[in-house]
Design a protein around this nucleic acid. Structure first.
Lengths: 230, 230
DNA sequence: TTCTTGTATATTGTATACAATATTCATTGC
DNA sequence: GCAATGAATATTGTATACAATATACAAGAA
């Protein structure tokens, strides 16, 4: 008999704790600079310190957490320098990935995303924000899926997590979503038209805009201070 | 009184075990596909399983080790696909880093490297191989140091480890060193002349050559097989 | 008060213990 | 002989124990 794979949740405590803490960081339930006590997280998540420690070490590899010897783990502090560095790296990696993905995306996926764009055009207010988020995720997922490079995929996921973590606060969510959508739509149209040069230009502009936006917010919020809870 | 930092070896067992296993992998004392028993490494390195596990998890994040749930850690297997993917990623990251480093390198460091090039020209045989290795390391270290992007630096170190790990066997060490040297010297000259366009072209050619060289060796050694100890 | 200094407490880094799952290997049946 | 089965063994994943270090806080000196 062929091995019917029941696939009963292979994920370990370590993995689940990793994802849980990642969520806490990305949703800003844990803020930059905040201490991550092993015991505290262990009792919060109802496991022992061991899987918590493994998760924290992994998050440290990801760059979201910093370990100070014998003093424990802290959520990474964020400085304008960090934002600048991250977005420059992101630009490098995403442009590379997008170039590789162009011409690799199956017709079905193209249709799927075109439909999501339609939805955005039809929706408004809260619905638009929701629809735009789905479109945003899907376009990034598509580039990730079809760039055909395993390690690059991991790095893209990583910079994505870092970017989310650094997106500390946004005032006007709808305005942001509108800007994001306009930029993404243009990038997407260049992608499916296979106009690589245009796509790269638009993608670079997009990321530069997002970087600038983040930096402006950062400076407005923390003018004078060096870093957020460094 | 100013804090005179005695700096008495902050490194933990975890760190030292990590470096030890990394060495074993890079020097091919542990071969691709080989099992990495926690108990075995623990007794080899005279520590408990805990720091070994932390080191293995970190190496897994680095992509040098693969974990199979409840079955343990294995040195990553190598396929031509892996080599191709790595060198394409390396090209992306190193070109980016080199562009950022150009014009950032202090005069003193330029002189230092120029001297190392001199040494290579003067040396021959085993001495040349030795001198070329030093020059190779120094040029990469220089790009890493002056690219001014923390996360990028970590990624460069990572792809460098992966590249070393995949460099399974080389027959003619001197011929390889000569080729490497010629390419590196040209790249370096373009860098200090601040001819970015030429530098990028030479760097890309260099990495493509190294990739091809590795793939050729791989195919010669394992023609027919799918991967090395996958 | 403010700055030391010392002690109690808490937390980390590592070792060990233990339960759950893989692997090994001998035995059985074909 | 070879595949299937199952007990014995080994290894992993997680919990706990323990020693070393850091933190917090109280008492005393400047």
């Amino acid at each position: 008999m062929k091995d019917i794979d029941f696939e009963l949740d292979q994920s370990s405590f370590s993995d689940r704790v990793y994802n849980a803490i990642l969520e806490l960081l990305i949703n800003h339930r844990i803020k930059p600079g905040e201490k991550l006590s092993e015991e505290g997280l262990a009792s919060l998540l109802q496991v022992s310190r061991t899987p918590v420690r493994e998760a924290l070490k992994r998050l440290a590899s990801d760059g979201l957490v910093v370990f100070y010897p014998r003093r424990g783990a802290y959520a990474k502090g964020i400085s304008p320098q960090d934002i600048t560095e991250l977005y420059e790296l992101r630009r490098c990696l995403e442009v590379f990935a997008a170039r590789r993905a162009v011409g690799n995306i199956p017709e079905k996926q193209i249709k799927r995303i075109n439909l999501m764009i339609e939805s955005c055009h039809l929706a408004d207010g809260g619905d638009f924000i929701e629809a735009e988020l789905l479109f945003d995720r899907e376009i990034h997922k598509t580039i990730n899926t079809y760039c055909n490079n395993t390690r690059l995929k991991e790095m893209l996921v990583n910079v994505d997590h870092l970017a989310k973590f650094m997106r500390i606060l946004h005032f006007d969510r709808e305005e942001l979503a509108r800007e994001n959508f306009a930029e993404h739509e243009n990038i997407w149209r260049a992608m499916i038209a296979r106009d690589e040069t245009l796509m790269i230009r638009l993608l670079e502009e997009h990321l530069d805009n997002r970087k600038k936006c983040l930096l402006d917010h950062f400076h407005m919020m923390y003018s004078g201070e060096e870093a957020v809870h460094s």
